[in-house]
Design a protein around this nucleic acid. Structure first.
Lengths: 118, 118
DNA sequence: TCTTCGGATAGACATTCATCGATACGAGGA
DNA sequence: TCCTCGTATCGATGAATGTCTATCCGAAGA
């Protein structure tokens, strides 16, 4: 539990507003933060999940839609959704008995900025 | 050896000119390709290495500089440089007995495009 | 040709991680 | 208060990965 909370605290807020790859010596701490967020993107299953959510633009997507559409077991999808939320790439919202997810657009803007070489 | 060659063939050429996260159902193959490139970026040591190379702009960086600057063993740096080259993020050039590395700017442009949500 | 030295490879080890079946939790309805 | 069902967690397992020491390769110089 403490691990999860620490990760959220570490990754979620402003993970990318500090630095870019092109700014010369990337500190070990900054590298750790950005690597954490990029690691959340480095799995094909998570990319497919993200794609489905991102395709809805600003609308939220029900987890049940994902379990149906993709050929992946429900625990696995739940696991990946949790990782994406912890990385600050998705937000979760409970509506009745359904969980809905939305992309965090600022997180992607920060990532694109980090990957700029100018 | 064949594994390395296959990865190069798989990842290096135009891995990102096909798709974006926002384009609805990301195919399993596309997800695999992009995840491979992102996985190369998901390690803090590799980000620090990349940062040092990227800071030189279009100039090549000698591997010996990296071994001196960062507090990481020479085989480890060599290992990471190889991964970055395989992912198409760096190019390697041998000059005499020294190896020089340069960032592949198009690869980063493709990544930024992939992470755009529009 | 022998020596030196930068860099890559081999092999080992510990750690992380993706995945799944089984199960627990929790909200809504009967 | 039970039942149903969507979702999260647990536990296990096999695979991938980062790091190191030791060693090898290959180019330049004496």
């Amino acid at each position: 539990m403490s691990t999860v909370l620490e990760n959220v605290k570490l990754l979620a807020p402003h993970a990318g507003d500090c630095c870019s790859l092109a700014t010369a010596p990337l500190s070990a701490d900054d590298a750790e933060q950005m690597a954490g967020r990029l690691k959340a993107l480095s799995d094909p299953t998570r990319l497919r999940v993200l794609s489905h959510v991102a395709a809805q633009g600003c609308d939220a997507v029900c987890a049940c839609d994902l379990t149906e559409t993709l050929d992946i077991s429900q625990p696995t999808i739940s696991h990946h959704l949790k990782k994406l939320v912890e990385a600050g790439l998705l937000t979760r919202e409970q509506r009745g008995k359904w969980a809905h997810y939305t992309v965090v657009r600022e997180a992607f803007a920060e990532l694109r900025q980090f990957l700029a070489l100018d």
